[in-house]
Amino acid sequence: MDQNHALIEIKDVTKVYQMGEVEVRALRGVSLEVHPGELVAIMGPSGSGKSTLMNILGALDVPTSGRYLLDGQDVGGMDDDHLAEIRNRKIGFVFQSFNLLPRTSALANVELPLVYAGAKNRREQAIAALELVGLGDRIHHNPNELSGGQQQRVAIARALVNEPNIILADEPTGNLDSKSGAEIMRIFQDLNAQQDITIIFVTHEPEIAEHTRRIIRLQDGQVLSDSSVKNPRQAGDRAYTRRARDIAHHENGADNNGAPSLAEEKIHPDEQSDPGSVETQSIVTQMGAEEGA
């Protein structure tokens, strides 16, 4: 992808809600650009407009004024069905509360965007996406048979399956314990690093935000700061993955059950030089295998 061409470009975007008699100005002129391959965190106190911004970025809503170019397309003036198509083809959503269909298998949940895209080979694509998040052995489980972390991974697979330009995550770790939260961040970092997927997520936890190279802070509907992080936290370095690492050491050289793993095939050359990183790559695979057992 062309690094110079902005994937997301919003200019002076405002959003005004009419709540009865009262006008709520959720966004008061926000401008920003996100380039392909970026991993961006949006932070801000509640009421700062970050959810509204996410809704607009996600083509769930249109700005009251200002311009929104997504991959060069003007989203501002689109009708509902057009927006639905944009959401379907260019955007993957991950929600705080997972929003999986109940009584529906992980596979069917992941297939959902493909259903509306009218895609062929839905099953194969959905299985591939589930394997990418380490749930290749859980495809027939219903959400209530999965842990919170696993459910969120299904949701990520669903966001991935249509090969969107961008994944938008609204507090993806908000409903998870810190260990599961780290797993999710690990997957985001891997997807970003190895699949070159652009990811924007909202969080209010500074620790989570530090997993990114760029943090945008909002306040009162305006951008307060847009800063870069020098040394982003690597989810694999956290203490709570120590157990998984021990297992990795213990089973060193054991086969990976043939599941295509991020670790073996898609490691970036620059990351291979970092032994810790390689180790954590295999941990992802091990964790998936462990939970699947």
Partner: peptide, 16 residues
Amino acid sequence: TREIGLRKAVGAKRRH
């Protein structure tokens, strides 16, 4: 309602 919202979020059009 939530299911409908989700379906719309992942690309369901009105007619779907």
